[in-house]
Simulated assay, not measured.
Amino acid sequence: MMRILLFLATNIAVILVASVTLSLLGVGSVHDGQGGMNLQSLLIFCAVFGFAGSFVSLFLSKWMAKRSTGARVIEQPQTQQERWLVSTVEELARTAGIGMPEVAIFPSRAPNAFATGWNKNASLVAVSEGMLQRFSPAEVKAVMAHEIGHVANGDMVTLSLIQGVVNTFVMFFARIIGNFVDRAVFKNEGEGPGIGYFIATIFAELVLGILASIIVMWFSRQREFRADAAGAQLAGAGAMIAALEHLKAEQGIPVEMPGEMTAFGINGGLKNGLAGLLMSHPPLDERIAALRAGNYR
C-alpha cells in the first residue's frame, strides 16, 4: 500500500510541476490542426515532462527511500554499533569533502546499502541490518565508503539528468512516430489525432523506453565502478574487495529492495545474458577484477 501511495504522490507532483511549467512557458497544443505537429512545442512539452519526472523523483528521493525501505535515521546513537557507524560515516564524509549525510539502518536480512539525495551536502546513506550483523567492521566501512563515493561523485544528479534526457527523446520520437502512423497507416484526415496516434505512440514509447533503459543502465553500471574506486581510496582496496567478495558469497539471499531503489544499492542482484543489459550494477566478478587490476588509483 505504501509503495502505491508513493507512486501516486510522485506522479501527481510530476503532473502539477509540468503543468505549471508549461503554462508559464506558454506552450500550446503540439498539433497544428492540419495533420502536422509543432515540433518546437512538442520538444518543450516532452522536455518539461521528461525532466519533471526525473527531478521530482530526485528531490523526493530521501523521503521516498526512508518510507519504501523502512529506514530508521540515527538521530541520537543508542548503541556502540550505531555510534561506530555514525562516526565512520562522519570520517568518510570529511575525507571525501562532503557534508555529513543522514545515517540510517533499514530492516532487511539481505546485505545491502544505498545512498540518495539531491545534494552532496544533504544526502542519506543507509545500511541493512543483515549487513551490519554478518559483515566485518572493515567490510561495512568499505561499503559506506562506496556509498559516500556515490554522493561525492554526484551520481544521483548525473543519473537524473541522463534519465531526463532519454525521457524527453522517448516521448518526442514516440509522438512523431504515432502521428506518422495515424496519418499514413490509419489514414486519419481529421484536424486532430485519431485512435492510431494513441495506439502507435504507446507502442513506440514501450519499445523506445526499453532501448533508453539500456542506455541509462549502462551509465549506472559505470558509476558503480567509480564508486568502488572511491571506496578503495577511502577505506582501502583490500577492504573493498573483501566486501564485494562477501556480497558475492551471499548472492543467494533475495535483495529485498524496492524496484525504484535497486539502482541506488550496492548489491543490484544477479542477471545474465540480455537481461544483464538492463541491470543497474555490473557483475561482482567484474567489479572485483577491476579493483584487483588497480583501477582505483
Rank of each mutant, 00 (worst) to 15 (best):
H146C: 07
F203H: 08
F172D: 00
E260G: 08
A93V: 08
F49P: 01
M257G: 05
V181Q: 00
V48Q: 04
A229I: 03
L291C: 10
L159N: 11
E75R: 14
I105Y: 03
S68P: 02
A152N: 03
K141L: 05
N179Q: 13
M261F: 15
R292S: 07
W218H: 14
G149M: 00
R67W: 08
L284G: 05
D155K: 06
E139W: 00
A152L: 03
I12S: 13
M144S: 11
A230L: 03
F219R: 10
R94M: 14
M279Q: 14
V73R: 11
S41V: 01
V48S: 01
G36L: 08
G238F: 04
A9L: 14
H246T: 14
P254N: 13
L22V: 11
N153M: 12
A113W: 02
I215V: 15
T168H: 07
H281Y: 09
R226V: 14
T10L: 10
F135V: 10
D32S: 08
V185D: 04
Y296S: 02
R67E: 05
L206R: 09
V151T: 10
F114W: 08
S123Q: 06
V89Y: 00
I215W: 11
S280A: 15
G130Y: 13
D32P: 07
W63A: 15
F169K: 06
I12G: 11
F180H: 10
S123D: 04
A145D: 01
G130D: 11
A184E: 12
A110W: 01
D285Y: 10
A96L: 14
L39G: 08
A9I: 06
L284I: 15
P77H: 01
Q76D: 09
E191I: 03
G70F: 09
K141F: 03
A289Q: 13
G33K: 04
G53P: 01
W218D: 12
P111K: 07
N272T: 15
L24I: 12
V27Q: 02
T116C: 12
G209W: 06
H281L: 10
R226I: 13
F186E: 00
F173W: 13
M100F: 14
G259E: 07
S54P: 00
L234N: 00
I162D: 07
N179Y: 02
L159W: 06
D155V: 05
N11E: 12
L92G: 03
P101H: 06
A227L: 02
F114P: 03
S128E: 05
L5H: 08
A204T: 07
Q34P: 04
V17G: 04
H281P: 11
A212Y: 03
